[in-house]
Design a protein around this nucleic acid. Sequence first.
RNA 1: GCCGCAUUCGUCUAGAGGCCCAGGACACCGCCCUCUCAAGGCGGAGAUCACCGGUUCGAAUCCGGUAUGCGGUACCA
Length: 447
Amino acid sequence: MSDIRVRIAPSPTGPLHIGTARTALFNYLFARHNDGTFMVRLEDTDVVRSSIAYEKDILDGLHWLGLTWDEGPDVAGDADHGAFGPYRQMERLPIYREAAARLLAADLAYPCYCTPEDLEADRRRREAAHQPPRYSGRCARLTPAERAAFEAEGRVAALRFRVPDGVISFDDMIRGRVEIDTANLGGDFVIVRADGTPLYHFTVVIDDAAMRISHVIRGEDHLSNTPKHILLFRALGEAEPAFGHLPLILNPDRTKMSKRKSQTAIGDYIAEGFVREAMVNYLALLGWSTGTEEEVLSLEALVERFDVAHVQKAGAVFDRERLEWLNGQWIRRMPPDEVIDRLRPFLEAELAAGRIDRIPTDEEIRALLPVISASCSSTRWPSTSRCSRRNAGTSPRPRRRSRLRAPSSPRSGTSATRRMSSSPHSGAWPRSGAGRRATCSWPFAWR
RNA sequence: GCCGCAUUCGUCUAGAGGCCCAGGACACCGCCCUCUCAAGGCGGAGAUCACCGGUUCGAAUCCGGUAUGCGGUACCA
């Protein structure tokens, strides 16, 4: 085991997002390739929006992808494991409190009595004067007497970190040297709210230091935040980790991928019948390449080949067509029993929805499988192929699309489900007799 | 506005000074295979390497500027 320690730190305020999954994957690949440690830490300090249901969705999704972690909570709501826990931030509050007290005592941070109204007024004033937003520094040099006066008024203070003058530079693992003048950081920033709860910039740094994270690999949207983090590491007297900022995954219009414009929840892709191998393969190749012309790669092969030097710098548009193609590649080279196993939940959903009368037997399904695997037999796969099943079938009659799923999704309301319900082929498992037309549309989705 | 990052076929990418009048894959088109549709095979179309200068015998690759895009700029994460 090397000293390399990386983490994925999702916030359970929504279902597992494609971008989080990709960041998790890259951290995992980096850790496994270098014989390091990969951990999961839940950033659940946003108590209002966090929920156990989302925690479950996220952890289940990471398990589904086949990523394993060495430290952290394995099951939603359950205890975590590892030598640097706890791995849920809400269980680490005393640690943040102690660190805050330390910064305050050293005058590296100070109490700020500004009200949200004060701040809002400042912001508007600067905007009117065409100046960039920045904290006024009003509370930075309060005398003890002034502080006491505010306290007497009953005001509760937030804690602000003093941003020193100077240029912060670091060597990004992906982008190379980055330099940012602290004058552009917007002034002293809040690290603890007036209600006593710590803020993101503060907790990540404390936890990454405490958990001995060696490389912080995260989305590019954090690049501009990095100087704040470095300042905090220094103030806390902790060693700085290396930073690597991954390119963003984009909507078709090239803006940051969002729920509004794209299907972002991993769970929706699972429900649509995408297989983990394809998702992992696709995500790995979004923003990274082997440097060769290999395209179809297992998680193990990805671990073996992963190298940050080949990570792309520019954002990448999420291309569903390519995902579907990879899905077909993986389904076709899957052993029959595996396909049957993975089909089961979809069949059960169909049965529950009343679209089929019974679950077909394994033998019945098996009889249909040559239909999808036949193409594998007549082809010489590229050198990267893992397909060992030449001559697997004789009846070439695969389905149109490469999603492993029954004609409707266990999750209702996805666009795919709506597409399906209008299809003449939906619900095509033969209720009596095995008519050929019917069998050829089942159990895969037609579009 | 300010700061930062980026810019190779529609999309994902290869490319680290001559191997590139730019290669692969998805999508698209055509042909072949075929009882239909796929899958597969073969082929095609698709990129003045954002633009302008510079360095060099030689630049997609190095340097500078411009443009455009994106990200950040919270008592969100």
